[in-house]
Design a protein around this nucleic acid. Structure first.
Lengths: 214, 214
DNA sequence: TAGATTGTTAATCGATTAACAATC
DNA sequence: TAGATTGTTAATCGATTAACAATC
């Protein structure tokens, strides 16, 4: 059914196109050419046209792209017309933060439950969402079938919990623990490795220091 | 002084090598070959050898790599022997979470201050760190010269605050706002675009649904 | 129609993988 | 020494950019 496999690099760029097109819409802009957009985004016009043509011809020769139409089409490609239920595993600082992040709700991601092992936390509310015991997790997943589980728990617990989540039927894991999860191909995994990101800053700062010295 | 420019792709992988080597050390492993490491990390042995050789020969023919030595060398490349002072701009959920994330301290990143505009928050403590007024920001930066500023504030405030931070002398920005900051080349910027990441999950889930239908 | 800009093919560039001589 | 494994060159692969004919 699918014509050709879309490269990972293209998919990684789609949310960024979506963001810029959203901005253009907010500015009341109706049409945009690949050249204009490329100047805004600091990428080549060629790349924009190549990328979009992976999914079909959204533009019109001599005119460019209709902003609203393109925004909607990319939204469809990204699956943004659907809403997603997200559960958070680990009611620590990061888990709490994610549960209250309004940006997600705007994009159709709704946090429906938070789980923790700490009996002192269970029953408390975070941003209006009740913290449940991890012993209720299996039941919850099988009954409510959430789409995504965000893993905001300690490193050592992550692999084991992830394996259980998958067994109980979760389809996607948003992993904030600093480990690479080994899960079946069919499970979607997105990693947010914050300390990797900090180390890249550290590297770049070191480079900068060395450059300034010479 | 620097021989050749190291590619972005290689640098992005370094923290991951560092993480795996740390794990090997914890397991008491003394030596590792590129082949063994490649199997653990699910990359090719060739890539590992290529990557490491960007920085010089860390291994020994017939033996492989000394884990501890290699760990330390990559640490040096990443600038991990230095400690970094981090300030957090925006005392919301995410800012609070980052200020309490113990993983960072372990890597030498220390949160020294948190700033916010909300007078109701100013003076309160988060994880033992006092929230200061954004009006003290300029003074604080010029006096204490923190290395990194984490931007955990609303989208619309980000660009403006970032520009000020740079003017006052900050060298690196860890940006959590869903915008691309336009700053001078000399400023290090690392973006954590959480909603972009969620959209990639959304895309992958959509693909999965479609695959299952056919 | 003339001008603009796409969709698409071809050329270039860079990154990954394979292969193997060097050497521990 | 023989076996193992690196460092490094060459081959392949994929992604980006350039160019331009098609067409609105």
């Amino acid at each position: 059914m699918e014509e050709k496999e879309i490269s990972k690099a293209v998919i990684k760029r789609l949310p960024r196109y979506y963001r810029y097109l959203g901005d253009l819409m907010d500015e009341g802009c109706e049409r945009v050419s690949s050249k204009e957009l490329s100047e805004r985004m600091h990428v080549t016009a060629s790349q924009i046209r190549q990328d979009l043509n992976n999914f079909g011809g959204f533009g019109q020769q001599g005119y460019g792209y209709n902003v609203k139409y393109l925004y909607n089409e990319i939204g469809k490609i990204l699956g943004m017309e659907k809403n997603y239920d997200v559960i958070i595993i680990g009611a620590g600082n990061l888990g709490s933060a994610l549960s209250g992040y309004s940006d997600f709700a705007r994009r159709g991601f709704k946090v429906t439950a938070i789980f923790d092992t700490d009996s002192a936390k269970i029953g408390r509310l975070i941003h209006g969402i009740k913290i449940l015991s991890d012993r209720e997790l299996e039941d919850y997943i099988k009954t409510n079938k959430p789409d995504i589980a965000a893993l905001t728990l300690p490193r050592d617990a992550a692999a084991d919990v992830a394996a259980h989540l998958v067994k109980w039927g979760i389809g996607a894991i948003w992993n904030f623990a600093p480990v690479d999860l080994r899960l079946p191909e069919s499970v979607v995994v997105e990693n947010i490795h914050l300390s990797d990101s900090l180390m890249r800053i550290s590297y770049a700062l070191k480079e900068k220091r060395e450059k300034e010295m010479s």
